[in-house]
């Protein structure tokens, strides 16, 4: 079929467009030249070695990890509560409440960053890593709610009723039946939040105090051309890390879907 061939050609070009930056990242990370441009000069691991020796980078990484882990835990906890409430209970104003919780999904991040900055400064608090966590939890919670809602919804409600009917209390039912079956969704939500937080720049830039996060550190370094090749190496490591985490998240989400007997073709959103 002729239209099919054109279609495939378009998809091919589109995939090149989509992957161009991601593919260039490792290319320049291993390129033996201090200028990030073509033509390529040769292979080196030097830029990765530079990363090991940069103290500031290590501090920024530690900060980012602390923020990402805290964000993942808090956002997932808030997500579990909201997702459970929206999928199992009916209450007046439910749609409005859930819509409101999901708003950060479409709100420009600059608005989130600016408004939190204003409040924190007005309240007289100092900017710190924790102020970034506050902002990140806000933008990650909607993702967690979305993932966990589908986990709770795909759970056959009669499983919980069956447990109750067979003599277990509501609490025992939650731990013995509900939790094991939505656990993959919980893991998936945590990994997604962790990944989003680790890479988030716009909010972090507004809310960072004296301690930079990894993206804030990278932003600072982008101005210095001689730092660029090592940043490419750093980007490569981050990409691999993100992909590993996401593949794990996807694996758990699918396993969750399979366990509860739901076939689906959904992605992360």
């Amino acid at each position: 079929m002729k239209s099919g061939t054109w279609f495939k050609l378009y998809i091919g070009v589109f995939l090149i467009f989509l992957y161009a930056p991601a593919l260039l990242l490792p290319v320049f990370a291993f390129n033996d030249s201090s200028i990030v441009s073509f033509p390529l000069k040769g292979f080196t691991l030097n830029w990765f070695n530079v990363l090991w020796e940069t103290e500031a980078l290590h501090t920024a990484t530690k900060n980012s990890l602390l923020i990402a882990v805290s964000t993942a835990i808090i956002a997932t906890s808030l997500g579990i509560l909201a997702a459970r409430a929206s999928s199992r209970y009916k209450f007046r104003g439910q749609k409005a409440v859930m819509g409101f919780i999901m708003v950060p999904l479409v709100l420009p991040e600059i608005i989130v960053g600016v408004s939190l900055l204003v409040v924190i400064l007005q309240m007289g608090f100092d900017l710190s890593l924790w102020t970034i966590v506050l902002g990140h939890v806000l933008i990650c919670t909607p993702f967690c709610v979305a993932i966990l809602s589908s986990a709770f919804l795909s759970l056959d409600q009669s499983l919980e009723e069956a447990s109750f009917d067979l003599g277990r209390s509501k609490l025992a039912t939650f731990w013995l039946v509900t939790m094991p079956l939505v656990l993959p969704g919980v893991v998936s939500a945590m990994l997604i939040s962790f990944t989003i937080s680790l890479d988030e720049f716009i909010i972090a830039f507004f809310l960072a105090g004296t301690e930079p996060t990894l993206p804030v550190y990278i932003w600072g370094q982008l101005r210095f051309p001689q730092k660029l090749p090592s940043l490419m190496a750093l980007g490569t490591i981050l990409l691999i890390l993100s992909l590993t985490l996401l593949a794990t998240a996807e694996y758990f989400r699918r396993r969750s879907a399979r366990k509860t007997g739901i076939e689906d073709a959904g992605g992360f959103l």
Partner: peptide
């Protein structure tokens, strides 16, 4: 005790 329409067999 109840036999549910979906059977509600604990899949895990």
């Amino acid at each position: 005790n109840m036999v549910f329409q979906s059977y509600a067999i604990f899949p895990h």
